[in-house]
Design a protein around this nucleic acid. Sequence first.
DNA 1: TCCTGTCAAGAGCGGTGCTCTCATTCATGG
DNA 2: CCATGAATGAGAGCACCGCTCTTGACAGGA
Lengths: 264, 264
Amino acid sequence: MSEPHTHPAPAHGSAAQGSAAAHRGAAATTGAPTERPSAPRTARERARAELTEEIVGTARRHLDVDGAAGLSLRAVARDLGMVSSAIYRYFPSRDDLLTRLIIDAYNALGEAAEEAEAEQRRTDLRGRWLAIAHAAREWALANPQQWSLIYGSPVPGYVAPQDTIGPASRTTALLVGILADLHARGDVEQRSVPRSVRAALAPVRSAIPPDVPDDLLVRGLMAWTELIGTISLEINGQFHNVIADMPEYYDHVMDRTAHVLELG
Amino acid sequence: MSEPHTHPAPAHGSAAQGSAAAHRGAAATTGAPTERPSAPRTARERARAELTEEIVGTARRHLDVDGAAGLSLRAVARDLGMVSSAIYRYFPSRDDLLTRLIIDAYNALGEAAEEAEAEQRRTDLRGRWLAIAHAAREWALANPQQWSLIYGSPVPGYVAPQDTIGPASRTTALLVGILADLHARGDVEQRSVPRSVRAALAPVRSAIPPDVPDDLLVRGLMAWTELIGTISLEINGQFHNVIADMPEYYDHVMDRTAHVLELG
DNA sequence: TCCTGTCAAGAGCGGTGCTCTCATTCATGG
DNA sequence: CCATGAATGAGAGCACCGCTCTTGACAGGA
């Protein structure tokens, strides 16, 4: 028997299905209305949408506990009272489920950063940067496995599809906004950048306001790297026996980074 | 004959065993003399030491191809012409084999950095820093999976034993040396550091020369984070469609970092 | 020569992702 | 209103995985 965890009682597939359906229905009443552009019309389509969300939710719960490598379709199916092969009706493969989780993680981080940044005065560039930095670290500490999913070593054998690049750039777009405002303010000291480096920046150039100077762009990339690196090293435990009070250290580092960016 | 492989099994088994034994012997002749404190006396002990090294070598080859999560004891055993359970005579578990690979990776990176740094004039602090930075990136690009093993997201369920902290600090010790020399030179501008941050640095304080000032220590940590972060983001593919010429960008960033460290 | 400890092999357990078949359920078109 | 075809879940099965336990062959020391 390949599914040893299903009902030992005879001929109760329908009963198990019933209880699973009931649970599904209960979750549906509390579930948020899905903001799909076209609302599902038939009951079948509604059930499908709900079950899909439930699979994702259960998978995310497993991810948070066991990490990406420990995410098991069978375990998710077991939690939902169904059989592993049924999951494949909703996600063609484990990787597709993972893709969905990655997109959700990017969006959750992006949303947290956006909300924190929106609370700052537009003219307070330093405040906006520190708000993003704070929000990122707090989200990462609250969801370390999801952080590792998007900024940690990639899952072996998994290749990120194009769908992820949109949500992925949501957070960095905030930083680009700060850089643009900073440049618009006009009082930024500029160092020249070698032509070879300028050429190396060509891809990112095409994605940001063209008047942001090279030197500022490099400093922004370095600041972003420092942010990602500090959070990742903390989450990976590399600061054990190095830094006692990470919040203090992180605040200080991000403050210095703001200074390097000449955010005031 | 010292080979315990005279198995009266079907032809394919003994054939595979024979080739494996031959390969083992060849590896022994080219293998470096193990710097074990007590050389293996009996043939049995010698065979055990050689087979252990061969397991590690095969495992590292698999690691380089498939990543840590894809490292399979069964596949390693298959390559060596033995059965999976036999591996457990040499490593109590997969995690212990992984620990060995982690230690080796730290040592390999440390050695590469040490050699590169040793080639620089002692007074050329900037050159020493850039040499380390270069060696680290080159080693990482040549051994991306091993880099991810030590600086990427930790393998889930795996807890690093104490044996790893020694080799892990090998590379950072070089950086600490530069900071100490820089401070000894005396012409470093110092910003004050808040007392709370000073307290946060207590653990690392106890591991470095006591006269290195707090501000310099923070800058060193930030520089190290920038290095790890830049390399990791590159290896994880996060600079795709962002930076076209990574060597140019990396050189520039490390140069700016050297400037922040006031290495000249 | 016998004894003892080491070794590889093999079977087996519980787990994984994934595929295929089959029966059922359900929306819909005639 | 009912038949048809698509959607769906269950179940069996394949080839893997880490790990455990037992068994028989072997080497080295007494």
